[in-house]
Amino acid sequence: NITNLCPFDEVFNATRFASVYAWNRKRISNCVADYSVLYNLAPFFTFKCYGVSPTKLNDLCFTNVYADSFVIRGDEVRQIAPGQTGNIADYNYKLPDDFTGCVIAWNSNKLDSKVSGNYNYLYRLFRKSNLKPFERDISTEIYQAGNKPCNGVAGFNCYFPLRSYSFRPTYGVGHQPYRVVVLSFELLHAPATVCGPKKST
């Protein structure tokens, strides 16, 4: 009989979030998941669920729940959905087409922007091929755009693959930082360890 609440607040209220290319994953298990708490945590810009209804979450049980978190800019949030393409979905964080879970995003301009520009958040701009779903690539190998090998040196047709967002508070919403948490629900042929409040007794 599990009584402890799932530590969603640790994920959502973390002081620092990860850069999207090096997104963070927390496995959540053996706890009571009260998803209604999430609705009250922040004024969400996005709370979209796929393959599951957000209002039914509190009635369900899962084997595992994974919470992935990272920062992107406002106009990239739409890429965090099944079947999307674009720089983020292709080279940084890719959801599977049959994704079961929820994408939660909110504006973090007050936390993640600086007047002089916050350069701490990076994204991958160049990659030889698209990522597979939930693949994480943290390599910093020089990207070869031409025929000549780069031998690890940046220059003509040889690019450092990561680029930094420079978040400034005066930017338009599309270029402001957004914190994203992706909850993916895993149903294996194994005992369910993460249940809503109704199912945990």
Rank of each mutant, 00 (worst) to 15 (best):
N1A: 14
N1G: 06
N1K: 10
I2T: 03
I2F: 14
I2V: 02
I2R: 01
I2Q: 07
I2N: 11
T3E: 02
T3M: 08
T3A: 04
N4I: 12
N4T: 07
N4Y: 09
N4E: 11
L5N: 04
L5E: 05
L5D: 07
P7L: 12
P7T: 10
P7E: 01
P7C: 02
P7K: 02
P7G: 12
F8L: 10
D9N: 11
D9G: 06
D9A: 04
D9S: 06
E10D: 06
N13T: 07
T15E: 05
T15R: 07
R16G: 09
R16M: 08
R16N: 12
R16Q: 10
A18Q: 13
A18H: 06
S19N: 14
V20P: 14
A22C: 13
N24E: 12
R27S: 10
R27C: 04
I28L: 03
I28W: 02
S29D: 07
S29H: 08
S29N: 05
N30A: 12
N30D: 11
N30S: 13
V32S: 09
V32N: 06
V32H: 09
A33F: 10
A33L: 12
Y35I: 08
Y35T: 10
Y35P: 10
V37W: 02
V37I: 08
V37N: 07
V37R: 02
V37P: 08
L38I: 09
L38M: 08
Y39K: 01
Y39D: 12
Y39L: 05
Y39W: 04
Y39M: 05
Y39H: 04
Y39F: 04
N40D: 06
N40A: 00
N40R: 06
N40M: 13
N40E: 06
L41F: 11
L41D: 11
L41I: 04
L41Q: 03
A42G: 00
A42S: 08
A42L: 06
A42Y: 09
P43K: 04
P43R: 05
F44G: 08
F44K: 03
F44W: 07
F44P: 03
F44I: 02
F44C: 06
F45V: 00
F45P: 05
F45E: 03
F45M: 02
F45S: 02
T46K: 01
T46C: 13
T46D: 01
T46Y: 04
F47I: 05
F47L: 04
K48N: 05
K48R: 03
G51R: 08
V52I: 01
S53P: 08
S53T: 02
S53N: 00
S53Y: 12
P54N: 12
P54V: 09
P54Q: 05
T55Q: 10
T55L: 10
T55V: 11
T55N: 03
K56H: 01
D59Y: 13
D59G: 06
L60K: 03
L60V: 05
F62A: 09
F62W: 00
F62I: 02
T63E: 11
N64V: 01
N64I: 12
N64Q: 00
V65F: 05
A67L: 00
S69T: 07
V71I: 14
I72V: 14
R73Q: 06
R73K: 09
D75N: 09
E76Q: 09
V77I: 00
R78G: 00
R78H: 00
R78C: 02
R78D: 10
R78M: 09
R78F: 05
Q84M: 10
Q84T: 11
T85G: 09
T85E: 12
N87S: 02
N87Q: 10
N87W: 12
N87A: 10
N87E: 12
Y91N: 14
L95I: 05
D97T: 02
F99W: 02
T100V: 08
I104M: 12
A105T: 10
S108T: 11
N109G: 15
N109C: 15
N109V: 05
K110T: 05
K110E: 00
K110C: 15
K110L: 05
K110D: 07
K110M: 14
K110F: 15
L111V: 01
L111C: 13
L111Y: 09
L111R: 14
K114S: 15
K114E: 15
K114Y: 15
K114T: 15
K114Q: 15
V115C: 15
V115K: 15
V115S: 15
V115N: 15
V115R: 15
S116T: 15
G117K: 15
G117T: 15
N118E: 14
N118A: 15
N118R: 15
N118H: 15
Y119T: 11
Y119R: 07
Y119G: 00
N120E: 07
N120P: 15
N120A: 04
N120C: 14
N120W: 14
Y121L: 14
L122V: 14
L122M: 01
L122G: 06
Y123R: 04
L125N: 08
L125I: 01
L125T: 02
L125W: 01
F126R: 09
F126L: 04
F126H: 02
K128E: 09
K128Q: 08
K128L: 13
K128R: 10
S129W: 14
S129I: 11
N130C: 08
N130Q: 05
N130E: 05
N130Y: 04
N130T: 08
K132G: 08
K132S: 07
K132H: 04
K132T: 05
K132I: 12
E135G: 14
I138P: 14
I138A: 08
I138G: 15
I138D: 11
T140I: 11
T140G: 11
T140Y: 09
T140D: 03
T140V: 04
E141R: 12
E141Q: 01
Y143H: 07
Y143F: 10
Q144G: 14
Q144S: 12
A145R: 00
N147C: 08
N147H: 10
N147Y: 13
K148D: 08
K148E: 02
K148R: 08
K148I: 10
K148M: 06
K148V: 07
K148H: 00
K148A: 12
P149A: 02
P149H: 12
P149K: 02
P149F: 09
N151P: 14
N151C: 11
G152Q: 14
V153G: 00
A154T: 02
A154C: 13
A154L: 00
A154E: 07
A154S: 01
A154I: 05
A154Y: 13
G155K: 06
G155R: 14
G155M: 15
F156S: 11
F156T: 05
F156A: 02
F156W: 02
N157R: 12
F160D: 10
F160K: 00
R163H: 07
R163Y: 13
R163G: 05
S164F: 14
S164V: 15
S164G: 15
S164Q: 11
S164M: 14
S166F: 15
S166Q: 09
S166G: 00
S166M: 09
S166R: 09
P169H: 15
T170F: 15
T170K: 15
T170R: 15
Y171F: 05
V173I: 01
V173K: 00
G174Q: 08
G174F: 14
G174C: 11
H175Y: 00
Y178A: 11
V180I: 10
V180C: 14
S184T: 02
S184W: 12
S184M: 14
S184Q: 12
S184I: 14
S184N: 02
F185M: 03
F185W: 05
E186N: 02
L187C: 07
L187H: 13
L187Y: 01
L187T: 00
L187G: 06
L187P: 09
L188Y: 04
H189I: 14
H189S: 04
H189G: 02
H189V: 11
H189A: 03
H189K: 08
A190R: 08
A190K: 12
A190H: 10
A190V: 12
A190L: 04
P191K: 03
P191S: 01
P191T: 05
A192I: 10
A192D: 04
V194Y: 06
V194N: 05
G196H: 05
G196K: 12
G196W: 11
G196D: 13
P197S: 11
P197G: 10
P197I: 02
P197M: 09
P197V: 00
P197L: 02
P197T: 09
K198F: 03
K198V: 06
S200R: 04
S200P: 00
S200F: 06
T201H: 10
T201V: 02
T201F: 05
T201C: 05
T201P: 04
